[in-house]
């Protein structure tokens, strides 16, 4: 019975994550909603999560995209922890990690070096972000 092991249209799954003490979640809510309306399955982490909690959720939910929203300036501390956590569970290679929020220009190269695929700062549009996600999750 291997004739019909075919596939239906792939659904993109994403985790929208807030880490650390940053309590600004408007952006995360807006992007979660935009992703949903784009037809994605969105899991929202809720506020004040530790990097470990985000890693656990990303690993178990097997999301295609992990979107980390940070406006507190703590990205240099938190993002590396999340990425090394993903590596520990063998999830780094097939999870597209994107960051949204306030990330100064001089920090960007280092984050990308670590494995962040793209950083969306102020002015980035929803369409742009959705399009980026669609393009970069196709290989999965």
């Amino acid at each position: 019975m291997s004739t019909d092991q075919g596939r239906e249209r792939q659904t993109i799954r994403c985790l929208v994550a807030k880490v650390g003490l940053d309590g600004h979640d408007r952006g995360a809510h807006v992007i979660a909603r935009a992703f949903r309306d784009a037809g994605f399955e969105v899991i929202y982490s809720g506020l004040h999560k530790s990097p470990d909690e985000i890693v656990q959720a990303a690993v178990q939910e097997d999301v295609d995209v992990l979107g980390i929203s940070i406006l507190s300036g703590a990205h240099n501390t938190l993002v590396p922890k999340i990425i090394s956590g993903l590596e520990e569970y063998g999830a780094a290679s097939d999870t597209l990690v994107i960051v949204g929020g306030i990330v100064p220009e001089e920090d960007r190269a280092e984050l990308k070096e670590l494995g962040v695929a793209e950083i969306f700062g102020p002015g980035a549009t929803m369409e742009e972000t959705i399009e980026y996600v669609r393009e970069h999750t196709e290989h999965r």
Partner: peptide, 10 residues
Amino acid sequence: TGGSVLGDRI
């Protein structure tokens, strides 16, 4: 849209 927000985990 087929999209959803899965809110149980929270």
